[in-house]
Design a protein around this nucleic acid. Structure first.
Lengths: 128, 128
DNA sequence: CGGCATCCTTAACGATACTG
DNA sequence: CAGTATCGTTAAGGATGCCG
């Protein structure tokens, strides 16, 4: 038989593969424009749906709900519904969301810091 | 006249708006699954096209070239063509790319660290 | 081997309208 | 106000083939 079964305490290949595909799945969920912008803006403070929509700008109603659901499913965002009329829904980052926020801040900072360089690179690239 | 012209040293609204839309554009270029995975794998070492393709896994020929061109245009990746036969093309992260790599590492680390929590959140969410 | 172009399929997205 | 559903459009993405 294969040598791998000898150390039964370690997860078998099947489990490693599953964890890997899960990691990829999660990575795909968060590594997209809208999800990261939501994280970034919600990181500043709790916001209701329409506030967030206006803060981000350029995101459609549908995209916002859709991405918020995905983030909620992954435990990055908490949804609080107030039983008022008109209804009010607040969104907050969870602890995990806040942790990710640090990373997203880094991305935004990187973008700001390299704006000029990138613009120059683009001009050079587009010229040729 | 408007009050804004009085302080001519500061960039006018038009310039701020342009810088903002440029930042958004760049953010969209890098805030996507494939671009970030390329950054992550190229961060480990210089690779040729096919190596990178195999390392990432699940990315099509077309997506890889397309994203590499975008990254090259933004000055994150350098493309080195060797005049050999068969041809060989190496890709390397630039300084700016390496800087971004730190951020992407953070994202990958975050994903690994929260794998369990997220899986639990998903089960709970999907149950309801 | 790597790049580009083409076609085709699918999924993302926006707009609209209706419900609680 | 926020959410869901539907429809139509557009763009992303995969497969193939040909060129350097």
């Amino acid at each position: 038989m294969g040598t791998r079964q000898e150390i039964s305490e370690l997860p078998p290949d099947a489990d490693l593969a599953r964890a890997d595909s899960l990691a990829r799945e999660i990575f795909s969920d968060i590594a997209n424009k809208w999800a990261l912008l939501i994280i970034e803006f919600l990181g500043q403070r709790t916001m209701r749906f329409s506030e967030l929509r206006d803060a981000i700008g350029g995101i459609s109603h549908k995209m916002l709900t859709q991405n918020l659901r995905t983030l909620e499913r992954n435990g990055l965002v908490e949804r609080h519904v107030h039983a008022t009329v008109p209804p009010r829904v607040d969104y907050t980052l969870t602890e995990a969301g806040q942790a990710l926020r640090g990373v997203v801040d880094g991305m935004c900072g990187w973008t700001q810091h390299h704006l000029g360089t990138i613009e120059a690179c683009r001009s050079r690239f587009d010229a040729s």
